[in-house]
Amino acid sequence: MSAYRFLVNGSPAQVDVPGMRRLLDVLREELGLTGTKEGCGEGECGACSVLLDGQVVDACLVPVCQVEGRIVRTVEGLSLAARERGDLDTLQEAFLDHGAAQCGICTPGMLMAARAYLDAGGGPDDGAIREAIAGNLCRCTGYTKIVDAIAAVATPLD
């Protein structure tokens, strides 16, 4: 057991757990951030996607020792500023408007992959969006409305 320190959604966190504990388990069980979901535990479905230093990663494949001193962002931190107003951020809003969330279990991971894409300057191109979320399986939507929602946010306003 060691103490690991890192930033989660802008707040410092410290956990005393084995270094090989998955970031996914630390988030869900030590920090109570259950918005990050487990779908397969082997990096295939993307339901546990979070941002690690701004890059999208599968939290099931990250041992917590590798998170020491780094910055983690989860779905709970996607709209911190907006949520204080009881509101959604633009990406969440677009998902809601377009019907991009159905059962919702892939949604947090999908949002994080989309966030990483948008933060990296991704545009509304259909193929580029699909590539950006290809690591996030959705069984409900057929992806059409998800792609539409991301494209709507990525489209620069005139």
């Binding site: 990096g43 993307g46 999208v56 992959a113 894409y117 979320i133 690591g135 996030n136």
Partner: peptide
């Protein structure tokens, strides 16, 4: 290889 999540790691 994989997708963004795997390529990043």
């Amino acid at each position: 290889i994989g997708a963004a999540q795997i390529q990043n790691r």
